[in-house]
Computed example of a mutant assay.
Amino acid sequence: MHAQCFKKIMTSLSKMYTKKIKKQISETPYNVPYVPNIWGAGLEIQNFGMKQYFYHVVFPEYFPKSYMLNALDFILGTHPVVNISCFASRIGVGLLTQAYRINRGEHSHIPRGIGSGTALIRLIFPNLLNAPVYGNKPNMF
């Protein structure tokens, strides 16, 4: 970041990207850009939060740490309405039991695995539905 020309270009791009983020955040009640496709946007929100850390380190005047922390809050279960489920398995109040890892097809459990987000049941807000767990409790390794 020592070359003035490069810094000027990056500053200009950062300003434009910040405007885009603010617009996306204003369109949802989640305080993060939430643009689901077939399934939820949980993995994209994790990616967004991780990138925001690096943006904040380089350009704290354009990328406040609240962007990164809002993404973390979302993954840990801070959602509007009744959905307080966490997308990291076995963390928080609403316990996600099956996460997206190599065990997905066998309906087993890996602690702190990450789910992709909410199922798109298009009412007012997306809902988080747990995958079926066979037996009385999930398989624990």
Rank of each mutant, 00 (worst) to 15 (best):
S85I: 00
P29H: 13
N37I: 11
H2T: 09
M10T: 14
C5V: 14
C5I: 11
V81N: 14
Y17R: 14
V82H: 09
A3W: 15
V35D: 12
Q52M: 13
K7E: 09
K7A: 06
G113V: 04
G113T: 11
A71D: 03
Q4K: 04
L95N: 07
R112G: 05
K23Q: 05
I25M: 05
P64T: 08
V57S: 09
M50Y: 04
P33G: 07
I38H: 05
H109N: 03
L123C: 06
M10C: 06
I9G: 01
K22F: 02
T97F: 09
P126I: 04
K19G: 01
H2N: 09
L95A: 02
I9E: 08
Y100D: 10
I84P: 02
S66F: 06
F59C: 03
A131T: 03
F125A: 04
A71Q: 11
M10F: 14
I9W: 15
V35Y: 07
L72K: 07
I21Q: 10
C86N: 11
G49M: 13
Y17W: 14
I75R: 11
K23P: 02
S14G: 15
F74H: 05
N127H: 11
V81M: 12
Y62T: 04
I124D: 07
T78H: 10
P132V: 07
R112V: 09
M140H: 01
S66V: 10
C86I: 00
F48W: 05
M68C: 13
L13Y: 14
N83I: 00
Q4M: 11
N31S: 11
V32N: 11
I75P: 11
F59P: 00
T118L: 02
L96W: 08
N83V: 07
S26R: 09
H56F: 10
N83D: 09
V58F: 12
F125C: 07
L72V: 15
T11K: 04
I25K: 05
F87N: 02
K23C: 03
N70C: 10
P138W: 09
L69S: 15
G105Q: 02
G117F: 00
L128K: 12
M140D: 01
A99P: 00
L72M: 12
P29A: 07
V57Q: 10
I84G: 08
L43M: 14
I102H: 13
N37P: 01
P80L: 05
V93M: 03
G115E: 12
L69N: 13
N130K: 02
L69D: 11
E44C: 09
N127A: 08
L120M: 09
M1N: 14
A41P: 11
L129Q: 06
G49T: 09
G92F: 12
